[in-house]
Write a protein that binds this DNA or RNA. Sequence first.
RNA 1: GGGGGUGUAGCUCAGCUGGUAGAGCAACGGCUUUUUAAGUCGUGGGUCGGCCGUUCGAUCCGGCCCACCCUCACCA
Length: 482
Amino acid sequence: MDLLCYPLMNEQQQERIKKLGSIKALGFDPFGKKFPATTAIKAIKDNYEESKIVTTAGRILAIRSHGKAAFLDLKDWTGKIQVYIKKDKVGDKLFQLYEAFDLGDIVGVKGALAKSKTGEITVFADDFTMLSKSLLPLPEKWHGLKDVDLRYRQRYLDLIVNNEVLDVFIKRTKIINYIRNFMGSKGFVEVETPMMHPVPGGATARPFITHHNTLDMDLYLRIAPELYLKRLLVGGMERVYEINRNFRNEGIDTKHNPEFTMMEVYQAYGNYEDMMEITEQLFVNLAKETFGGALKFKYGEKEIDFAPPWPRQSYMELFQKHAGCAWEDTEKVLAKAKELGLDLKGKTAEAIANDVFEKVVEPNLEGPVFLIDYPTAICPLTKAKSDKPEICERFELFINGMEMANAFTELNDPLDQRKRFEEQLARKTEGSVKLDEDFITAMEYGMPPAGGLGIGIDRLVMILTNSLSIRDVILFPTLREK
RNA sequence: GGGGGUGUAGCUCAGCUGGUAGAGCAACGGCUUUUUAAGUCGUGGGUCGGCCGUUCGAUCCGGCCCACCCUCACCA
């Protein structure tokens, strides 16, 4: 530590630096090495046996000092255990080391297990060592860290101090592992496709732009993996999925983070009905897995019921019901849009109608509910119904007003696909830079008819962990630079 | 971008009508060898988010700015 920064430090930091010195003077390394043969704290407690010798390590979260003895609370990521240090037992030198302990230090401890007077399982230490001296004071032990900005910026502190936070992220991992097993059991293969795209596609969002120096070309962080996964269908990979990040250069709120995790699934020779089945089954299984078999659970103030089968409602009918006019009735729809104060600049009638839909229908969808029968005009990658070409084979899943999944029977006619892309480009939809010629070429070689599905993993984790903000299920959400 | 809220010690928060600040935890020094939000006596710690203004005097009033939260708008 450079002594020049010494006067800049506050009182508590200076104290800790001093203690660092005394630890060295005692012959201990304040930033220790491998500490072998430790047992997880939960395992110690679960397999409690009086006077069994145990070794463990963790962070000190409380010190209750009694002069010539002390109780410590030691925490690892499985739990918390009490340690008792007595001067008579450990000797002067170790007791001096203990006196240089602060809240937040990481220490290793060895001792016999027993219960204290109040019945708490306690390690009666006969040896311990410093593994990492903490130079900054932790947030307060009782109230924890509440400032949400600090919680996201310094997630490590949030994890140390707020126990529920670790639980959420462990659950997140378990959910994703479950999904992988589930998909594997259905014969799907996980693949990885590029994050950097020469042509952004597969959705209509504004992309992030970056540049490759040696190739001297602009690249776009992907807004969706869709067009690459479909190339794999062309290549004969009949059941593929990818769980990975998408990047969209748009607004940030409690349901949107610029980088977020999606699962996309493609099943050759299937259609959107298959995707609906997979979705419902997967969500129901996950709820059972998460809530010990229960299908009803709380989300915020509301109760969500996953009991299948989930209702299916027609886009057009819902539109009629909530907007009070038919989707195709351009004049009335326009009037409604104006009434709602929507921005109509440069938008097609269909886009405006869809805006009205999102405004008047979506927030009311408590769900889980599958919206079906989307108008073909707003679905550039979706196959239309053969008997009713103005309607296409697509569904979106809504839970608590949030779009959770989006799926369709994939368009596999390259001529039609080119036409729709060109129409989209002509409308200059934001984010559509140019036509992905290679994707069309791939389709010209023949893409099997297929069902495709996208699931917002972060939002799924939100629902299953009762998290009201997407930032609570992303370890390091995007923040303004300080 | 509009509206509302918040910003005070390392953390969690008080602070009335304008007189340059308090508590708990944390820290430091005592006492304390079974406590668990340990106890107890004492001590230190602040650019009151920033700048400008009004005033004899501003944490407090006014203006501008910054950050975060909520909400609306924008954004498949």
